[in-house]
Amino acid sequence: MGSASRCASCLCCPFKCLACGLFSCLCSILVTVLVVAGILALVLYFIFRPHMIAATVDSASLTAFTLSPSSALTYNLTVAMTVRNPNKRVGLYYDSVEALALYEDQRFGYAPLDAFYQPTEASTQLSPVFGGQQLLEGDATASDFRGQQSGGAFDVEVKLNAKLRVKVWAFKVAGPRARISCPLSLPAPGAAAPPAFKPVDCKVWF
């Protein structure tokens, strides 16, 4: 009875049966493509095993860091840092590279950097320089500044942002945006016999 009913339905509306068949075929193709893409992505992952980039600040110096009564910060900060690509089979392009300097979560310095390419297992030295004057907000910020100044060291954060492109063999594909954060404790300008700078490992996330 059911078979006869379906046949009668197809005889009455052949286009309906054709549409159902095409829909079923498209669903099967889509599922197959997704499964193949997932397997391919898994195979590529195990072949290339991408690793997180690494970054360190090798040296940093504050030659000027003063706060006026109106909370205007005058600063001069130089930083030398190394960014490393630990991957053995993946090259990295760094685009729209920018370095930021922050004090008490307020940005006071900005330095655009040139785009660059890192071959596999390569390191790149970057030297952002920050100088100028910037107004800081908040009475707590001024209070913290005076406290750190009397203690002989300032807590400064240097950030590096870049848009990545990934090179695998001859293929280049868009990658994530890399964000690097480096917390530093730097001797106040003019401090007597400041301690030798110890390299600082930075945090990296995408």
Rank of each mutant, 00 (worst) to 15 (best):
G2P: 08
S3H: 15
S3N: 15
A4W: 13
C7V: 13
C7I: 15
A8S: 12
S9D: 15
S9R: 15
S9V: 03
L11Q: 10
C12K: 14
C12G: 06
P14F: 12
C20Q: 15
C20D: 14
G21H: 12
G21W: 13
S24L: 15
L26I: 13
I29P: 12
I29Y: 14
L30W: 05
T32R: 11
V33L: 15
G38N: 12
L42F: 08
V43L: 14
R49V: 11
H51T: 07
H51L: 11
M52S: 12
A54N: 08
A55E: 13
T56Y: 08
D58L: 09
S59Y: 07
T66Q: 04
S71K: 01
S71H: 03
L73N: 05
L73V: 02
L73F: 01
T78F: 02
V79D: 01
V79P: 02
V83M: 12
K88G: 10
R89Y: 04
R89I: 01
L92S: 11
Y93V: 01
Y94D: 04
D95P: 00
D95E: 11
S96I: 07
V97T: 11
E98W: 09
L113S: 03
A115Q: 13
Q118I: 00
S123H: 05
S127P: 00
P128G: 06
G132D: 07
L135W: 03
L136G: 04
G138N: 02
D139N: 05
D139W: 00
A140V: 13
D144A: 10
G147R: 05
G147M: 05
G151M: 08
G152R: 10
V156L: 11
V156K: 06
E157P: 00
V158N: 01
V158Y: 01
N161F: 07
A162Q: 04
K163H: 07
L164T: 13
R165S: 12
V168G: 03
W169G: 09
W169D: 12
K172M: 02
V173K: 03
G175A: 08
P176Y: 13
P176S: 05
P176C: 03
I180M: 13
S181D: 07
P183D: 07
L186Y: 06
L186Q: 04
L186I: 04
P187F: 12
A188P: 03
P189M: 10
A196D: 04
K198P: 00
P199Q: 06
D201P: 00
D201G: 00
K203P: 02
W205S: 09
